Structure formats: C-alpha cells, structure tokens
Simulated assay, not measured.
Amino acid sequence: MDAIMHRFLLKRLQRRLFWVVLLAMVWLLCSGEALATPLAERVSTFPDWSSKPPVQPSEGDLVYPAWLDGSWRMTSTLRAMTAPLAPDVVTPGFEGNRQFLEVPIEADIRFYKTRVTGGRFLNQRLKTTEGVVSDRAFNGLSLARAYLGDDWVQAVKVDSDNPNRQITLLKENQQLISTVTGRTTEQPDSDTFITTEMFQQFFRGGRPTVYLNEVENTTAYHRELNHVVADQITAIYLSPQDPDYFKAIDRPVALYRYRLELTSLGNT
C-alpha cells in the first residue's frame, strides 16, 4: 500500500474510531474479582469528569447478572457528546459524530452461561464457577457491522490465549487491536449492575504499529419488567505519545453518552 493510501485509511479509521471504541468497550468482556466502587456516583456527575476511574488489572471473564443471559436486540442511541478541552484539544472525528445524535442503531447481541475462573493467584488459576458472560466474538462483529458497515468490517476475533485482547479485521488488511487493561464492577441492588473498563487500541496496517487513544467505558445496566436499559458513557483519553498529551494528562478529551435498550429475543 502506498503512503497516500495508508494515510487515507488511517485518517478514515481515526474518524470512525469512536464507533470501533463502542463495540470494543461494550463487548470485550473479561474481568477479575469485582471491587465495589462509587461508579453510580461517577455516572451521575457526567460530564464533570476530571480524572480516570480507579480500576483493577483485567484478568478472566466478566461475570454478568443471571438476568442478562440470552439473546437480545440492542438499540443504542447517542444522547450527548462534549469535548471538555475544546478548542485547545479536539479528537479526530468528534464534530463529524454529531450527525449520530439521537439516531438509534440496532444490533443483535447475546450472553450465555459457562464455566469461568476468578483470575489468578501466585500465577495459578483460581477455581472455576458457572457464570453469565458475553459472546464476545459474535457481539463484537454484530456491533461493528451495525456501526461501520459490512464492507468495512470483515471479522472480529478474541485472542484464545488472552480474552482481554480483541482483534477487529478491517478491509485492506487493516487491524484494530483492543486490549482491556483494567476493570471495576459494582452491583448496588439485584436489578442494577455497573461496570467500567479501561482499554488501549493499536492500529496495525502495512506500516509500523500506530498507537491510538486510551478509552474508558462505564455502563450502568438496570433490569425493568420485560427488558434491560443502560446508561453508557465513553471517555477518550490521549496516549502519552500524542503531542497534546500534556494539555490533558488524565482528563478526558471527548465524552459520549448513550442510552441502551435491550429487548429479549427469547432462547434463540
């Protein structure tokens, strides 16, 4: 691929990074032991975020409440977006994403019961238990194509040796590699489940790897009578390699807030 085409594809990927972030951060679902933290308070203070959330290193699968087991039709709607450090720092594609405000996007997702481990201790895996986890590869592909289109996304794969690592295969032999680095969860009551994840992304093409931004995804799920709703916030942080890094440090440079609605598809 010549240099002009490479720059074109990278620029296009950066413009669409927000959407790839969504699929990776929502459905790359791997976690260690849960740690109770005031995530509900963090959600309630949006958009007044001035730092990253405290998280634990990610290891093992994230176990969801039993009421998420099954297949769902998810509708995701971008309700609000802000660039806290504008005009000094604005991420690529931020203004272009305004066209998606209040536009519902639908995708099928699913969760299932399986044997999961609680992480490691002294480099040994802890005992396994049964829990509900996300079908990461299926959900990642479904969401990626819903947001980016079938022609842009070829496949989504989860690393068999590291469930925290997900690879999105794009056209022109491009890859977006997302790795969850930390996670925290809490369950304030039997009908509410809140999780936050931090992850990093790398773009791999015909040239040396290009490091992209660090992303936080905080989601508060709530079970209602016959469906599940969620308040989801995506925060974009600059990587140390970014020339504007010291203007932001640990402050988010872009914030997006979504409304998620999950309607059961039955035992399909």
Rank of each mutant, 00 (worst) to 15 (best):
R15P: 00
L17M: 07
W19V: 12
W19N: 10
W19L: 14
V20T: 06
V21R: 01
L22K: 03
A24S: 11
V26T: 05
W27H: 13
W27S: 12
L28T: 12
L28I: 11
C30M: 05
G32H: 04
G32V: 09
E33Y: 09
L35V: 15
A36P: 01
A36N: 09
P38F: 00
E41G: 10
R42P: 03
V43S: 05
T45Q: 04
T45A: 03
T45P: 00
T45W: 00
F46R: 03
P47K: 01
D48F: 05
W49E: 01
P53L: 13
P54T: 02
Q56V: 14
Q56R: 10
S58P: 06
G60L: 05
L62I: 14
V63M: 05
V63E: 03
V63L: 02
V63Q: 02
P65L: 00
A66C: 02
W67D: 02
W67C: 03
S71T: 12
W72K: 02
R73K: 15
M74E: 03
M74G: 02
M74R: 00
M74N: 01
M74T: 05
T75L: 15
T75Y: 11
S76M: 15
S76K: 08
T77K: 10
L78F: 04
R79D: 08
R79N: 07
A80E: 09
A80K: 02
T82A: 08
A83N: 04
P84Q: 15
P87H: 14
P87E: 08
D88T: 00
V89K: 03
T91N: 04
T91H: 07
T91P: 03
P92L: 11
P92I: 11
G93H: 09
G96N: 13
Q99G: 15
L101E: 08
E102P: 15
P104R: 11
P104L: 13
I105M: 12
A107I: 02
A107D: 00
A107G: 07
I109Y: 05
I109C: 14
I109T: 09
